[in-house]
């Protein structure tokens, strides 16, 4: 079984700083692997253990994203493909999906399964996964918490939705978007780290993929940002130091009544 795992390097959104003109300070913000992609990696490692699956990790990003690929190899992934080219810059979800699907088609044409995280914490669009599936014309399962079973090219998975839990079967090849699940994250073992250090990370460019410059990056993106701004902070109100806890409860009770959220 061959798995293509798509991961994204994202800024740690808990660590964002702002300039005086309310623009985001991008320098010096730590980059991390998107937390949801870690859950996708976990599902891939489970399949590796059970079915001897081979995991090729794809990421699109700057050259320093190679370090993140090495981190995935250190915990058990087999290969890393870095999709990197200045011409990919400014890509929206469609252009990103197009580039990543071209890379998978070229580097792992006989894949059985593509795994992605459900969301990336920076953009939070949840669109790139379905976009890749659509462009490769394979079925997709979104909101997957767990892969239950996989044999004879049929995969069974659990989807967690707002109204309940589905068990679904899908024909492979397919793409799955993985949600958060309960697990203990894998730790890199010393021989994993050594393997990661020595692993060759293949870098592929626009030309390698045979893509047209008009189809990639900002040029290949149907959408563009016309304006970005910080939302107004509307809170930051009164602070009551209450010597008696009863007093605190009374203040809250009064405020709850005041804003009129209680029925009846």
């Amino acid at each position: 079984m061959k798995i293509a795992l798509c991961v994204k390097q994202v800024p740690d959104t808990s660590d964002i700083k702002w300039t005086e003109n309310n623009t985001m300070q991008r320098d010096g913000v730590e980059s991390i692997i998107n937390p949801y992609d870690v859950y996708a990696l976990e599902q891939a490692l489970k399949l590796k253990k059970e079915l001897n699956a081979e995991i090729t990790v794809f990421t699109m990003g700057p050259l320093q994203a190679a370090d993140m690929l090495r981190d995935t190899i250190a915990v058990g992934a087999d290969k890393g493909i870095l999709i990197s080219d200045k011409k990919f810059a400014g890509a929206d979800t469609y252009a990103t999906g197009k580039t990543i699907s071209a890379a998978i088609k070229k580097e792992l044409p006989d894949f059985d399964l593509i795994l992605c995280g459900q969301f990336a914490i920076d953009g939070d669009t949840a669109q790139t996964g379905p976009c890749i599936a659509s462009l490769l014309d394979i079925p997709q399962l979104t909101y997957v918490r767990e892969i239950n079973d996989c044999n004879d090219n049929i995969l069974t998975a659990t989807r967690v939705l707002d109204d309940g839990i589905e068990t679904v079967k899908v024909q492979l090849p397919a793409l799955l978007c993985i949600l958060k699940s309960d697990f203990e994250p894998q730790r890199a073992l010393i021989n994993g780290i050594i393997k990661a250090q020595n692993a060759e990370i293949k870098t592929v460019s626009l030309d390698n993929l045979g893509l047209n410059p008009e189809d990639a990056g900002i040029k290949g993106s149907p959408t563009y940002v016309s304006k970005a701004f910080r939302p107004e902070v509307k809170h930051g109100g009164e602070k009551f130091f209450c010597l008696e806890n009863r007093e605190g409860a009374e203040i809250l009770y009064g405020k709850i009544k005041e804003i009129g959220v209680l029925n009846g």
Binding site: V233, H235, E238, G248, L252
Partner: peptide
């Protein structure tokens, strides 16, 4: 903790012990 950052985003903040304040609030409600 009166210095907790949660107060900066709250309209109304009570500096007090939840285990005391909440049961009293429930009683009032």
């Amino acid at each position: 903790d009166p210095n907790a950052p949660i107060f900066d985003v709250s309209d109304t903040g009570i500096v007090g012990d939840v285990f005391e304040v909440v049961p009293k609030l429930i009683e009032m409600l």
